[in-house]
Amino acid sequence: SEEEIREAFRVFDKDGNGYISAADLRHVMTNLGEKLTDEEVDEMIREADIDGDGQVNYEDFVQMMTA
């Protein structure tokens, strides 16, 4: 549901600035027990970053979650 997606976005957007940065993503993945290299984190950001601004905004996140 849209509310679940919004809630998930809030979990990833640690600093609440409306964007998921590589640092935000790394933090959440580490908490989930996933040890990722910087390259892996950057690749995840690139794949999710639809508009190419280097971070994942809510619209990018929705597209990723509903793809």
Score class of each variant (00 low, 15 high):
residue 1 S to H: 11
residue 1 S to V: 08
residue 1 S to P: 06
residue 1 S to F: 11
residue 1 S to I: 08
residue 1 S to A: 07
residue 1 S to C: 12
residue 1 S to M: 09
residue 2 E to N: 07
residue 2 E to F: 14
residue 2 E to C: 14
residue 2 E to A: 14
residue 2 E to Q: 11
residue 2 E to V: 14
residue 3 E to T: 09
residue 3 E to Y: 13
residue 3 E to Q: 12
residue 3 E to C: 13
residue 3 E to S: 10
residue 3 E to W: 14
residue 3 E to K: 09
residue 3 E to V: 08
residue 3 E to I: 09
residue 4 E to M: 13
residue 4 E to N: 07
residue 4 E to S: 09
residue 4 E to L: 09
residue 5 I to Q: 02
residue 5 I to W: 14
residue 5 I to T: 03
residue 5 I to G: 00
residue 5 I to S: 01
residue 6 R to L: 10
residue 6 R to C: 05
residue 6 R to E: 02
residue 6 R to V: 04
residue 6 R to A: 02
residue 6 R to K: 05
residue 6 R to F: 05
residue 6 R to N: 02
residue 7 E to Q: 12
residue 7 E to V: 05
residue 7 E to P: 01
residue 7 E to N: 11
residue 7 E to H: 09
residue 7 E to S: 10
residue 7 E to I: 05
residue 7 E to F: 06
residue 7 E to T: 08
residue 7 E to L: 10
residue 8 A to C: 06
residue 8 A to M: 11
residue 8 A to E: 03
residue 8 A to D: 01
residue 8 A to G: 03
residue 8 A to N: 03
residue 8 A to P: 01
residue 8 A to H: 06
residue 8 A to K: 09
residue 9 F to K: 00
residue 9 F to C: 06
residue 9 F to I: 02
residue 9 F to H: 00
residue 9 F to G: 00
residue 9 F to A: 02
residue 9 F to M: 04
residue 9 F to L: 06
residue 10 R to Q: 05
residue 10 R to F: 03
residue 10 R to Y: 03
residue 10 R to G: 03
residue 11 V to P: 04
residue 11 V to L: 12
residue 11 V to H: 09
residue 11 V to S: 08
residue 12 F to V: 03
residue 12 F to D: 00
residue 12 F to C: 04
residue 12 F to N: 01
residue 12 F to R: 03
residue 13 D to S: 02
residue 13 D to E: 02
residue 13 D to W: 02
residue 13 D to Q: 01
residue 13 D to I: 02
residue 13 D to Y: 01
residue 13 D to L: 02
residue 14 K to M: 09
residue 14 K to P: 08
residue 14 K to R: 12
residue 14 K to I: 11
residue 14 K to L: 13
residue 14 K to D: 04
residue 15 D to M: 09
residue 15 D to G: 07
residue 16 G to E: 04
residue 16 G to V: 03
residue 17 N to M: 08
residue 17 N to Y: 06
residue 17 N to Q: 06
residue 17 N to I: 06
residue 17 N to R: 10
residue 17 N to F: 07
residue 18 G to K: 02
residue 18 G to D: 01
residue 18 G to P: 00
residue 19 Y to Q: 05
residue 19 Y to K: 13
residue 19 Y to A: 03
residue 19 Y to R: 11
residue 19 Y to L: 07
residue 19 Y to C: 04
residue 19 Y to D: 01
residue 19 Y to N: 03
residue 20 I to E: 00
residue 20 I to D: 00
residue 20 I to K: 00
residue 20 I to T: 01
residue 20 I to Q: 00
residue 20 I to C: 03
residue 21 S to W: 06
residue 21 S to C: 07
residue 21 S to H: 07
residue 21 S to Y: 06
residue 21 S to I: 04
residue 22 A to E: 08
residue 22 A to R: 13
residue 22 A to G: 05
residue 22 A to M: 13
residue 22 A to H: 07
residue 22 A to Y: 13
residue 22 A to P: 10
residue 22 A to L: 15
residue 22 A to N: 06
residue 23 A to V: 10
residue 23 A to F: 05
residue 23 A to T: 10
residue 23 A to E: 11
residue 23 A to C: 07
residue 23 A to G: 08
residue 23 A to R: 12
residue 23 A to I: 07
residue 23 A to Q: 14
residue 23 A to W: 04
residue 24 D to A: 11
residue 24 D to T: 05
residue 24 D to G: 03
residue 24 D to V: 05
residue 25 L to R: 00
residue 25 L to Q: 00
residue 25 L to G: 01
residue 25 L to W: 04
residue 25 L to N: 00
residue 26 R to F: 06
residue 26 R to V: 10
residue 26 R to M: 05
residue 26 R to P: 03
residue 26 R to I: 09
residue 26 R to A: 04
residue 26 R to E: 02
residue 26 R to Y: 07
residue 26 R to T: 04
residue 27 H to S: 09
residue 27 H to R: 13
residue 27 H to K: 13
residue 27 H to A: 11
residue 27 H to N: 10
residue 28 V to I: 09
residue 28 V to C: 02
residue 28 V to D: 00
residue 28 V to E: 00
residue 28 V to P: 00
residue 28 V to R: 00
residue 28 V to M: 03
residue 28 V to L: 07
residue 28 V to S: 01
residue 28 V to Q: 01
residue 28 V to F: 03
residue 29 M to W: 04
residue 29 M to A: 03
residue 29 M to E: 00
residue 30 T to R: 15
residue 30 T to Y: 13
residue 30 T to D: 08
residue 30 T to G: 08
residue 30 T to P: 01
residue 30 T to C: 09
residue 30 T to V: 11
residue 30 T to E: 10
residue 30 T to Q: 12
residue 31 N to Y: 15
residue 31 N to A: 14
residue 31 N to D: 05
residue 31 N to V: 14
residue 31 N to T: 12
residue 32 L to D: 01
residue 32 L to P: 00
residue 32 L to H: 04
residue 32 L to C: 05
residue 32 L to Y: 12
residue 33 G to K: 14
residue 33 G to S: 12
residue 33 G to T: 10
residue 33 G to I: 11
residue 33 G to H: 11
residue 34 E to N: 14
residue 34 E to Y: 15
residue 34 E to D: 12
residue 34 E to S: 15
residue 34 E to G: 14
residue 34 E to W: 15
residue 34 E to F: 15
residue 34 E to R: 15
residue 34 E to Q: 14
residue 35 K to N: 11
residue 35 K to G: 12
residue 35 K to I: 11
residue 35 K to E: 08
residue 35 K to M: 12
residue 35 K to S: 09
residue 36 L to F: 14
residue 36 L to C: 07
residue 36 L to M: 10
residue 36 L to N: 03
residue 36 L to D: 01
residue 36 L to P: 04
residue 37 T to C: 05
residue 37 T to N: 05
residue 37 T to F: 04
residue 37 T to P: 05
residue 37 T to Y: 05
residue 37 T to K: 06
residue 37 T to I: 04
residue 38 D to N: 10
residue 38 D to G: 08
residue 38 D to T: 10
residue 38 D to Q: 12
residue 38 D to P: 13
residue 38 D to F: 08
residue 39 E to P: 05
residue 39 E to V: 08
residue 39 E to F: 12
residue 39 E to D: 10
residue 39 E to H: 11
residue 39 E to Q: 10
residue 39 E to S: 09
residue 40 E to W: 11
residue 40 E to H: 07
residue 40 E to G: 04
residue 40 E to T: 07
residue 41 V to I: 12
residue 41 V to L: 14
residue 41 V to G: 01
residue 41 V to P: 01
residue 41 V to K: 04
residue 42 D to C: 08
residue 42 D to W: 13
residue 42 D to G: 07
residue 42 D to S: 10
residue 42 D to L: 12
residue 42 D to Y: 10
residue 43 E to N: 14
residue 43 E to C: 14
residue 43 E to W: 15
residue 43 E to G: 11
residue 43 E to H: 14
residue 43 E to T: 13
residue 44 M to H: 04
residue 44 M to P: 00
residue 44 M to Y: 06
residue 44 M to F: 08
residue 44 M to T: 02
residue 44 M to N: 01
residue 44 M to A: 04
residue 44 M to S: 02
residue 45 I to T: 04
residue 45 I to W: 06
residue 45 I to F: 11
residue 45 I to H: 02
residue 45 I to N: 01
residue 46 R to T: 05
residue 46 R to H: 06
residue 46 R to G: 06
residue 46 R to F: 05
residue 46 R to D: 05
residue 46 R to V: 04
residue 47 E to F: 15
residue 47 E to S: 15
residue 47 E to L: 15
residue 47 E to I: 15
residue 47 E to C: 15
residue 48 A to Y: 11
residue 48 A to G: 06
residue 48 A to P: 01
residue 48 A to D: 02
residue 48 A to F: 12
residue 48 A to W: 13
residue 48 A to E: 03
residue 49 D to W: 09
residue 49 D to T: 13
residue 49 D to L: 11
residue 49 D to F: 09
residue 49 D to A: 11
residue 49 D to G: 15
residue 49 D to Y: 11
residue 50 I to M: 10
residue 50 I to T: 12
residue 50 I to W: 09
residue 50 I to P: 10
residue 50 I to V: 12
residue 50 I to F: 07
residue 50 I to K: 14
residue 51 D to E: 08
residue 51 D to G: 12
residue 51 D to A: 12
residue 51 D to I: 11
residue 51 D to H: 13
residue 51 D to W: 10
residue 51 D to Q: 10
residue 51 D to C: 10
residue 51 D to V: 08
residue 51 D to S: 13
residue 52 G to N: 09
residue 52 G to H: 10
residue 52 G to V: 13
residue 52 G to R: 11
residue 52 G to K: 12
residue 52 G to I: 10
residue 53 D to V: 08
residue 53 D to Y: 11
residue 53 D to G: 07
residue 53 D to H: 10
residue 53 D to E: 12
residue 53 D to K: 13
residue 53 D to N: 13
residue 53 D to S: 13
residue 53 D to W: 10
residue 53 D to T: 13
residue 53 D to F: 11
residue 54 G to F: 04
residue 54 G to Q: 05
residue 54 G to V: 04
residue 54 G to K: 04
residue 54 G to A: 05
residue 54 G to E: 05
residue 55 Q to M: 14
residue 55 Q to C: 10
residue 55 Q to Y: 14
residue 55 Q to S: 07
residue 55 Q to K: 13
residue 55 Q to A: 06
residue 55 Q to L: 13
residue 55 Q to G: 06
residue 56 V to T: 02
residue 56 V to A: 03
residue 56 V to H: 02
residue 57 N to F: 14
residue 57 N to S: 13
residue 57 N to C: 14
residue 57 N to G: 07
residue 57 N to D: 04
residue 57 N to V: 06
residue 58 Y to S: 01
residue 58 Y to R: 01
residue 58 Y to Q: 02
residue 58 Y to P: 00
residue 58 Y to W: 12
residue 58 Y to V: 13
residue 59 E to C: 05
residue 59 E to V: 06
residue 59 E to Q: 05
residue 59 E to I: 06
residue 59 E to H: 08
residue 60 D to P: 15
residue 60 D to C: 15
residue 60 D to I: 15
residue 60 D to H: 15
residue 60 D to L: 15
residue 60 D to A: 15
residue 61 F to Y: 05
residue 61 F to V: 14
residue 61 F to E: 00
residue 61 F to T: 01
residue 61 F to N: 00
residue 62 V to R: 04
residue 62 V to Y: 06
residue 62 V to C: 02
residue 62 V to M: 10
residue 62 V to S: 02
residue 62 V to T: 03
residue 62 V to I: 15
residue 62 V to K: 04
residue 63 Q to N: 09
residue 63 Q to A: 10
residue 63 Q to F: 11
residue 63 Q to R: 15
residue 63 Q to H: 13
residue 64 M to W: 10
residue 64 M to F: 09
residue 64 M to Y: 09
residue 64 M to V: 07
residue 64 M to L: 11
residue 64 M to P: 01
residue 64 M to I: 09
residue 64 M to D: 02
residue 64 M to K: 14
residue 64 M to C: 14
residue 65 M to S: 01
residue 65 M to L: 14
residue 65 M to G: 01
residue 65 M to H: 03
residue 66 T to H: 10
residue 66 T to P: 02
residue 66 T to R: 12
residue 66 T to F: 14
residue 67 A to Q: 13
residue 67 A to K: 15
residue 67 A to P: 05
residue 67 A to F: 02
residue 67 A to T: 14
residue 67 A to Y: 03
residue 67 A to V: 08
residue 67 A to C: 11
residue 67 A to L: 06
